[in-house]
Computed example of a mutant assay.
Amino acid sequence: MEIFQIVVLALIQGLTEFLPISSSAHLILPAEVLGWQDQGLAFDVAVHFGSLIAVVTYFRKDIWLLLRDGLGGLKSRQFSDEGRLAWLIVLATIPVGLVGLIFKGYIETHLRSAAVIAATTIGFGLLLWWADVRGARVQTLTQLNWKKALVIGGAQVLALIPGTSRSGITMTAGLMLGMKREAAARFSFLLSIPAIALPAMLLTYDLLALESVPWGDILLGTLLSFISAYLCIHFFLQFISRIGMAPFAIYRLILGAALIWMIWG
């Protein structure tokens, strides 16, 4: 891969992994416009690990409390807010883990077309906008219960369909359940840790079978993905309560229209 391609794709992956705008839709556009070939398995592993390192680094204090109180609660049989949240994250991860393992092959074979991505980019963009406008936006993370966590986890399953956006659909579900914007975003980002880690580990296992690995590309892609993802998380949480989801929904509509024009124009 050329340096320019590495930089563009790594920055796109890092930014779009956590913004509610769909990383898969964005990775199609540069390849189509510039005629790039598929970046390959090694690079996919690199940018996913970069995003994972970013979210773990940003929420390192939260993660420590979640692990400490989540495991400690099993011993004491009394859970703090952080301990309860830790197990709600585990519960919400189960649906996407099971469905992903069962239908991974089917999804990669039948649902990775530009037409599907264009439709989901537009459709779930409109749903995000509707949820932001109609949602009560009053509940915090401490008010999240197992039923609501399971609903958000079920919504995350839809993110297996390219163009949906994992962060977008989980925030949409949170807003529809009455969560505040920042609370929905925070839970979505914490939920991304196992959601990114599990497929990244599977990709790493596949990577070990390769005869030659472009380590230079991997290191650069990981670093750039980490930087862009970290900055994305920081600024998104800073401004989301003020700007709302409308700008991202409008952007998705424009992006979906661009994909449709590419397909049928």
Rank of each mutant, 00 (worst) to 15 (best):
S188N: 10
T120P: 04
F103K: 05
L27V: 10
W130L: 15
Q37T: 11
T57K: 05
L71E: 00
G105R: 11
C232N: 03
F103S: 03
V90E: 01
T120Y: 02
V8K: 04
G14C: 03
L41A: 13
L175M: 11
I233V: 14
I152F: 09
A136M: 12
K75Y: 12
W130Q: 12
R68Q: 14
I218E: 04
A195E: 05
L150T: 15
I240L: 15
M262F: 11
M179R: 07
I240M: 05
E108M: 00
L74S: 12
A246C: 00
Q13W: 09
Q13E: 15
F187Q: 06
L34N: 01
L66A: 04
L144I: 13
E82P: 00
S51W: 08
G163Y: 03
T57G: 13
E182N: 11
A136K: 15
I6T: 14
A86Y: 03
G135E: 06
L198S: 15
S228V: 11
H234E: 10
A184H: 03
A25R: 04
Y205V: 08
L253E: 02
L198G: 14
F43S: 11
T170H: 03
F49H: 05
Y58L: 13
V157L: 12
F124G: 01
L175E: 09
F124W: 09
S113L: 01
I6L: 12
A25H: 07
W261G: 00
S76M: 01
P194Y: 10
L224F: 09
A42H: 10
D62F: 00
E32R: 12
A229D: 01
L253R: 03
G100L: 11
S212A: 15
M262N: 06
H110C: 01
V138S: 12
A249P: 03
S51E: 06
L219G: 14
Y58M: 04
A200V: 02
Y205A: 13
N145L: 04
F79R: 06
L202W: 02
L65N: 11
A197D: 04
Q13C: 10
G221W: 07
F248Q: 06
M179K: 08
P95Q: 08
G135L: 14
L41H: 13
W64D: 00
A119F: 14
L203Y: 09
R68P: 05
A118M: 09
L198V: 15
L210M: 10
T172H: 01
I63D: 06
A197Y: 11
